[in-house]
Design a protein around this nucleic acid. Sequence first.
DNA 1: GCCAACGTTGGC
DNA 2: GCCAACGTTGGC
Length: 152
Amino acid sequence: MNYWLMKSEPAEFGIDDLAARRRQREPWDGVRNYQARNMMRDQMCRGDQAFFYHSNCPQPGIVGLMQIVVEGYPDDTAFDLDDKHYDPKSDPQNPRWFRVDVELVRPLNRTIGLAELREHSALMEMPLLRRGNRLSVMPVTATEWKYILRLE
DNA sequence: GCCAACGTTGGC
DNA sequence: GCCAACGTTGGC
């Protein structure tokens, strides 16, 4: 079992949008970063748990728990001329971008904010908290996962 | 392979 | 809106 943190801008797709699809899988697509792609394509396993993180918004932070329900497969939004994530360099014969499907486990009772996370020295190794970090998908250790859940 | 220019991310 | 940090692109 692996643990992850996945960012989304709530103005684009937030925890409420995922909650509206409860018990239904939702593709986590549009990721156009090689490190994040590699993790989705090669490392994420069905049953892995993930934090849903709101970024680029008034209250950035962890807002929910998800699980991976479908492992990495080609992100076909890259093939769609009309999609905002269209990438002419990706094609079905040789897909460049991958996605996974997720499912909501539950929203958190409250947002565990970025500033609050920074207050805990036990979390200082998280990529999320490192200067200049821009990864939209990143691993979380089992220790960090349990620690953060206790903050709720 | 280097590196400047440019675009994007994302907190504040 | 600002801006630091980082990734990507493309000329050479």
